[in-house]
Nucleic acid binder design. Sequence first.
DNA 1: CCGCGCTTGGCAAGCGGTTGCCAAGGGTTG
DNA 2: CAACCCTTGGCAACCGCTTGCCAAGCGCGG
Lengths: 337, 337
Amino acid sequence: MANPTIYDVARAAGVATSTVSRVFGKPGRIADATRDRVLQAARELGYEPNPHARALTSQRTQTIAMIVSDITNPHFFELIRGAEMRAKAAAYTLVLVNAEESTRMELEQVRRLTRSVDGFLLAASRQPDDKLADLAAARPVVLINRRVEGVASVVLEPWEGSRQIVAHLASLGHTSLVYLAGPTNSWMAASRWTALRDAAAELGVRAVRTGPYTPTVSSGGAAADAAIGTGATAIVAHNDLLAIGVLRRLADRSVRVPEDVSVVGFDDIFAADLCTPTLTTLGGAHSDVGRAAVEILVESLGQPRSSTPSPQIVLPSQLVLRASTGTAPAGERTTQR
Amino acid sequence: MANPTIYDVARAAGVATSTVSRVFGKPGRIADATRDRVLQAARELGYEPNPHARALTSQRTQTIAMIVSDITNPHFFELIRGAEMRAKAAAYTLVLVNAEESTRMELEQVRRLTRSVDGFLLAASRQPDDKLADLAAARPVVLINRRVEGVASVVLEPWEGSRQIVAHLASLGHTSLVYLAGPTNSWMAASRWTALRDAAAELGVRAVRTGPYTPTVSSGGAAADAAIGTGATAIVAHNDLLAIGVLRRLADRSVRVPEDVSVVGFDDIFAADLCTPTLTTLGGAHSDVGRAAVEILVESLGQPRSSTPSPQIVLPSQLVLRASTGTAPAGERTTQR
DNA sequence: CCGCGCTTGGCAAGCGGTTGCCAAGGGTTG
DNA sequence: CAACCCTTGGCAACCGCTTGCCAAGCGCGG
C-alpha cells in the first residue's frame, strides 16, 4: 500500500482508529497487549504517521526554526550544530533560516513559519527590543546572544569577558585601545563596548570606539586603517572575522603584530587558531549555547503557554590567549602612520 | 481573531471557501474583481494559509531537507548557504539534518521526513549505490558530491582537478606522492584517488595511498606520520581539515613545508587561506553546488514524477595555489624520519 | 430572441489524525 | 454477592484546505 493510514492499521489490528492514534500519541493510555498488536500491524503495513495531519489538529509540529542574522558567519556554525544536535535528541526537526542581516526579512520569515513550527530561535537578532518582546509574546521564542527583558535567552557572557580582555592588555602595558564596533543594533556589540569602556576606565586605559563595521574579513581593511589612525596600541575587533581582516591589512602595511600593535577578537572561530599570528580572542562553547537554547525552547513547549518564567541564561566565555597580543611597544605611539 | 481561516475570509468577502482557496492556489482561475475583494478581506483579517492543512490534501509542503554527512565539516557551510539561499528564492524552506557520518541515521531521517518534505538533498552520502537508487526511486532526491547512475546529482569536478594537482606537483619536480584517503565509502575519496593514481602513472609520479582517515584536523597527526613514513615528497590530503592537521603535525616535527614536503588539500575552506603556511587546495564554488542542487530539485518537483531525466551536473573545480607546495627537495627522501 | 459555449464560483467530500465523551468490562471492597 | 471504580477502547466531530464536478451567468452568433 502506498501510504497506509491509521484506518488501515486499525482494520489490520482489529481496533478503532482512536486506539491506533493513542498508541502513537499517549502510550500509557492503551493496554500492553493491544499496543503490541497495533504496533505489529503498523510495522507490517509500513505505517508512518503523517506529520501534517497530526499538526492540523494537535497544533504541534515537532519542528523549531532557527533564524540566523547572517548564515555566512562561521561563528554561527557551532551554534547551528549544537542546536541541531539537541533538537534531534528531542525528536525535533530544525529548520534553518537566513535573515541576511535584514530585520524586515527576519520578521517576514517568522510570520511565514509561525504556523509550521512550534517555536523560534533568534540568533543575534537586530530587531529593536520591543519588536522582540512582541514576537515573544505571540509565540515561543528563545533569543541567542541577545537579551531582552521578559524574553527567554541564552548568551555567551560578554561583560566579564571584555573586562578580562582589558585586564590582559593592561597587564601587557597597553594604555590605550580601540574597539572596532559591530553593527549598530547588535546587542553584543553594545554590551562589549560598554564593558570594555568601563573596564578600561577602571584600569586607567584609554578606550575609543570606531565603526560600525560589517563583521566580515573584507571590512577589516578599513577598520585596521581607522584603528591605526587612533594611535592605540591595542585593537579589539567586534569579532574574529573582522580581526582577521585587520591582521591581513596590518601585515600588508608592515605593522607587526603583536610587536607594534596587539589584536583581540571575539568568538574564537575555528580560523582564529590558524591565522598568522594566531588570534587572541574571547571564546566560549558556542555549541553549548545552541544546545541550551533548544533545551529551553523545548522545555517551554512542554508547559502550558505563558506559565514559563523566561529564563535568561548566561554561559561562560573564556579568553583564549594566542599570539596576536603582546607587550605594548616601548614609546606610546601617538603619531599616525 | 486568533487564527482566521478561509471560512472567515470567505464570509468577509462574501464568496465561497473554494473561491478563497483558489485565489491563493491558482490565481488565474478567479476573476480580478473577486480576487481583489478576497485579498482585501484576507489582509484585513490577517489571514495566513495553514501550511499543514494545505499539505494534507495537496501533498506539497514547500519544504526540502538537506542531509549532511557531518555538519561539523566547514566544507558544508558554503554548500548549506548556497542551498538555503536558493531555496528561499524559490519559496521553499530548508530543513537541515545531520547524519553524523552514520548511514543508518541517514536512512532513518529520510524515512522520518519523507512525509513532511517535498524532496531531499543528500550531501556526501555514504550509502551504497543501490541504496541511494532505491531512495531516489521512491522520492525526489538530488545527490551532492556523490554520483550514482540514474540519480540526479551535482558534484564538484574531482578528476581533472586531481590531475591538475599531480601536474602541479610534477612540474615542481616531485616524483612521489601519498594520498591520505578519506572515509572508505566516500565517493569523492574514491574518485580523487583513482584520478590521482591515473594522472600520477601518466606523469611518471609514484603514488601511494594510506588511510582511510576521518577527515578532521585531529586525524591529521597520525596521517602526517604515516605520510612521512612513505618517504613521499608530496602529501595530498583528502580534505583541507585533514591537510591542516597534517601541517600542524609537520610543524611539530620540524618538517618544513614546502621545503621538505609539499601539502595539498581539497575543498578550499575558509581556513585554508589562513593557516601557516597557507594551503594549496582544490577548490570550487561550493555555494554554487548547493544552489544548483536545490535548483534541480525544485525543477523536478514542478514536473510530473518520473518524467525527469535525472541530470548529472558537474561544476568546475579549480586548483588554488598557495604556500604549502613548492619545489621538491633536492635528494629524493627515502629514509624515514 | 434563443441556444450555445465559456468563464466563474459554489457544493461537498475528502486528506489523516486527534480528542472529548461515553460505555463496557474487569477487579476490588464491604 | 452486590455496588462501585477504574481502565480501556470506540464513536464521531472536527482541524483548515483542496479539488472534481456542476450550475449559473454572461456574451455572442444565427
